[in-house]
Write a protein that binds this DNA or RNA. Structure first.
Lengths: 150, 150
DNA sequence: AAAACTGTAACATTTTTTATTACTAATTAA
DNA sequence: TTAATTAGTAATAAAAAATGTTACAGTTTT
């Protein structure tokens, strides 16, 4: 299919899905369980009790990262395009979150307060360390490993 | 003050504040910068450009954990009740989040699907490891350390 | 007694997330 | 070659979560 419209950036047209990582891992686990089939978004959605459109949105993200390929039309669907042993949870994490962290206060802090002026910068540094830490952990787990738990 | 009403559980009466950790760290850093003063919620809110009521809600949480003490009435406010060197970011983390993680899909997955049946359990195990990891990191940083960066 | 606080309830608003509907385009199989 | 089925995506609606506001009771100091 080929829409003319520019699909500039997820940020503008799509909202973020906060269960994104979980949903994406679920999708990939299923695809890995049926490596020779094209699974439909409807089938996948049935396993997670989720609207098929949301599944397709996550699949669009996976396609953009060349992790899956899909086929339109009757008997179409999606299948893994990579070897599950070579795909780590870290990569999935990075495709679905920018980073972990413990959040920021919503409003701009007071720049005239020595604490307010630097709080976000200091939190960012802290969260950046957390990310390194978590990334190192997730890097050691492949989709294949995860999938074998089922 | 002493309201009669039962303040059973934050979960029911208060909404969760997702910037909770950031806000709490901000509050504690300020308190640590003025260890001899009772700071008012209005003053603190001014540093973070936040509604004073939200500050008081977080302070209520800190009080419940005996981290701060506060004084009502004129010239009242809040001050640290512990030594900043003995309070780690891990403890603050645990007072404001139950845990980190990368989320779950909102709906109950399909229990008739082998993947759906176990996905949440497997994600939980994964997130639990992440928590150990992050906790170990945060345990090594005291409020004093963090505060010294300002 | 007045002023300045905290504590907390109740409710309003805003923001984010999730779900739905509808339609275009592609592919397959009868 | 047409009907059925599927992906892609827009637009919008609904639900949930987070944040903000107002109001006022109770406390303490001056």
């Amino acid at each position: 299919m080929c829409y003319k419209t520019n699909y500039i950036c997820n940020k503008f047209y799509y909202s973020m899905i906060s269960g994104k990582f979980a949903i994406t891992v679920h999708i990939l686990t299923l695809l890995n369980k049926f490596p020779n089939d094209y699974l439909s978004s409807e089938f996948i959605a049935g396993s997670m009790n989720l609207n098929p459109v949301l599944v397709r949105k996550e699949i669009a993200n996976l396609k953009a990262h060349h992790i899956v390929e899909s086929k339109e039309g009757k008997n179409g669907g999606t299948k893994l395009a990579v070897n599950a042993s070579n795909l780590s949870l870290k990569e999935i994490f990075e495709m679905t979150f920018e980073s972990i962290g413990l959040g920021f206060a919503k409003n701009q802090p007071n720049p005239d307060c020595p604490v307010g002026k630097k709080i976000n910068q200091n939190l960012e540094a802290l969260y950046s360390e957390m990310n390194k830490n978590v990334s190192a952990q997730l890097e050691n787990i492949s989709l294949e490993d995860f999938s074998n738990q089922f």
